[in-house]
Write a protein that binds this DNA or RNA. Structure first.
Lengths: 120, 120
DNA sequence: TACAACCAAAGAGTGTGGTCTATAGTTGTA
DNA sequence: TACAACTATAGACCACACTCTTTGGTTGTA
């Protein structure tokens, strides 16, 4: 699959995909049989990764965090134990974020009460 | 209270406080009795606002969103109905964010299972 | 009165995450 | 074979949220 098909399938522009490639989040391969061009070819795993990137960005993960997450999942850079430790860390910080969001909900609910009571 | 005391109390640098002031999030007042200088003076409300800013930033709110939130709470720019509508909107988007975070938790838990099962 | 610590305002610089432009080459269809 | 549509690379540009520097002045303590 070439970059334009990948872009269509994921809804991410070719530009941004190239940016992610440059940032090390994904990796296309050249086809060695084709010498007339230098095009990148992408596989299904890349589609999965881009979907993960979209989700992770939505919750505020940085490119760097996403890169680590992809490594924990797809690469063999880390041992089983290291991968599990990293993923546990992510789960804990997600719980913290959820807690923070709930606190903000309480705060805003309090604001609402005060507005209703004409306190401001 | 002058800027340095405000900085100490909130843990935000004077520089950043001036940046927030320039961005319209907070407003110091000049003391009209003092003509030898042009220093800003801050009240307790500003401390509250800065604490709100810290919390809101932690959950990923932009300066602009925080500015709107402060207006919804402290200013008289908006009617009661407008304030309530705005705050309800914020509550809904917070719920969405919590949902997104929970989805990411599920995803990462699945990754953990796969790592445990030696699937990657 | 020297001087460190403080203050304001303007503007330059930084890092992140894109987004766009320019250039140059390749491919597929009419 | 003309030409639209595709590709890569490099680098410019953007908004955001700071962060730091410069300049010039004020205040409080020894």
């Amino acid at each position: 699959m070439l970059i334009n098909e990948l872009a269509k399938r994921t809804g991410i522009t070719a530009h941004t995909i190239r940016f992610y490639e440059k940032s090390g989040l994904i990796k296309g391969k050249r086809d060695e049989n084709i010498k007339s061009n230098n095009y990148f070819h992408y596989d299904e795993e890349t589609v999965e990764k881009l979907e993960l990137i979209v989700d992770a960005k939505a919750i505020g993960y940085t490119i760097n965090e996403i890169s680590e997450l992809i490594d924990a999942w797809y690469s063999n850079k880390f041992s089983k134990v290291e991968k599990l430790a990293f993923l546990d860390e992510k789960l804990i910080s997600l719980d913290q974020k959820i807690k923070d969001l709930k606190e903000m909900k309480n705060l805003i609910s309090q604001y609402k009460k005060d507005v209703l009571d004409g306190k401001c």
